[in-house]
Amino acid sequence: MIYFRVDGNEQIATGHIMRCLSIAQAIAEKGENCTFIISDDYPKALIQSKGFGTINLCSKWNDLELEITKLTELIREKEINKMIIDSYFVTERYLKEISKHIRSVYIDDLSLFSYPVDLLINYTSYYSKFNYESLYNLKSIKLLLGCNYVPLRKEFFQIKRNQINNEVRNILITTGGSDTYNIAGRLLDEISMEKRYKDINFHVVSGIFNQNLLKLKTLEENNKNIFLYQNIKRMSDLMMKCDIAVSAGGTTLYELCACGLPTICFAFADNQISGVEDFRDKKIMNYAGDARQNDNNVIQNMINGIELLCENAQQRETYSKKMTNLVDGGGACRIAQEVLAL
């Protein structure tokens, strides 16, 4: 049995849960069961819907040191020997104490300190800026670095886009599990007033913690070209159907890369900044900005980006090729192999 220690809720959304589920599914395909240890029941239904069990620690998701004793007791009780930990709220003490009892794996994209674990994963395109090789040079820690280890679901493995359409007919909008700034709703408000977009379908994916769901449903009811999705079973099918995407930062950007879907990206959290700016600097995606700094400006940049990509099939082709060259979708399987070999 492989255990995951991860959380998801209205504050931190579901990104950590989703990437751990991808790894868990890859591990399960290799014949090993997985269980998720969570601080509360917010993500329970999502995890169990994918066929995995949960254990509720009844702890504080944003103060992990308070759970050290309780988690250590659980490790002894369940005879846990391997655990994948995915939280921005780990501390050096937390990881050191937990790693005394298990083979530990940590998923990182911030490099806040030298992590006392057995296996460290950073699958981002910008991992090199953290100088992991020199930082862990004399330590017996296995490093899995770069986009070969992006933990995507099996549906994204070696998926191929046959062609870039001359005309844009379908646009995907996905703004994270909670969409704190109501970016999807406000963007659609602006677009629905423009006649030029009346023949384009807008496919909006809403996360389970989206507090603006009723507004999105109203937009769908009032506009024949707006379609709202929740709990979508195969995100890759929808991505492959679309010609352009608007997306928040996070693992979804790597899913879009695997699908070769030209994307306008934006950020709304600190942990997304490095990723979206790296994609901007490498000209892999069009970057609309940080919603926390000027959300109105971000909306306008999205509209400008949509207009640019609608008018320029060659630019869409260039983005698409760069994206598929970066991500092949096999990262979860590679991680599963390494975890099982620990």
Score class of each variant (00 low, 15 high):
57 L>C: 09
137 N>V: 10
99 S>Y: 00
261 L>C: 07
50 K>H: 10
233 K>P: 03
50 K>G: 00
325 N>C: 13
108 D>R: 04
69 T>C: 11
226 I>K: 08
177 G>E: 02
258 A>C: 08
33 N>C: 02
158 Q>I: 02
96 K>E: 10
280 R>V: 01
97 E>N: 02
69 T>L: 11
264 I>F: 08
187 L>E: 07
25 Q>P: 01
302 M>P: 08
226 I>N: 08
139 K>E: 13
37 I>V: 11
103 R>N: 10
182 N>V: 06
134 S>I: 07
236 S>T: 04
261 L>E: 10
304 N>P: 00
190 E>W: 00
312 N>L: 03
236 S>R: 04
272 Q>T: 06
181 Y>V: 04
85 I>E: 05
254 Y>A: 06
135 L>F: 00
296 N>K: 10
93 R>W: 00
8 G>C: 12
129 K>E: 13
125 S>C: 14
100 K>P: 01
286 N>S: 13
207 G>N: 03
40 D>L: 00
250 G>P: 11
215 K>F: 10
146 G>A: 10
55 I>T: 09
23 I>E: 04
187 L>G: 07
88 Y>G: 00
302 M>K: 09
107 I>P: 01
239 M>N: 13
245 A>H: 05
332 A>K: 06
263 T>M: 08
328 D>A: 12
66 L>N: 09
70 K>W: 01
116 P>D: 08
79 E>F: 01
114 S>M: 01
318 T>N: 14
297 N>R: 14
328 D>F: 15
279 F>M: 09
223 N>K: 13
192 S>F: 00
131 N>C: 09
232 I>S: 07
34 C>R: 03
291 A>H: 02
105 V>C: 11
300 Q>Y: 09
231 N>Q: 11
114 S>L: 10
259 C>Y: 05
53 G>R: 05
239 M>P: 04
128 S>C: 04
145 L>H: 12
291 A>N: 04
40 D>C: 04
199 D>F: 07
292 R>S: 12
326 L>Y: 01
39 S>V: 01
314 Q>Y: 15
282 K>V: 03
272 Q>N: 10
90 V>M: 07
115 Y>D: 07
95 L>T: 03
330 G>P: 03
244 I>Y: 11
165 N>F: 04
122 N>G: 09
281 D>T: 12
5 R>N: 05
27 I>H: 02
118 D>A: 02
220 E>M: 11
207 G>H: 07
3 Y>F: 14
192 S>C: 15
125 S>V: 14
12 I>S: 04
113 F>N: 12
217 K>H: 05
67 E>D: 15
140 S>E: 15
239 M>H: 09
246 V>W: 06
70 K>P: 00
184 A>M: 06
26 A>G: 05
111 S>C: 14
178 S>T: 15
57 L>F: 06
79 E>R: 14
331 G>K: 02
149 Y>G: 01
318 T>H: 14
61 W>C: 03
108 D>F: 08
185 G>P: 08
85 I>N: 03
52 F>V: 11
90 V>H: 07
267 A>N: 13
118 D>E: 12
267 A>E: 14
136 Y>I: 03
182 N>F: 09
142 K>R: 14
284 I>N: 03
296 N>M: 03
184 A>K: 09
207 G>S: 06
207 G>V: 06
321 K>Q: 11
277 E>R: 13
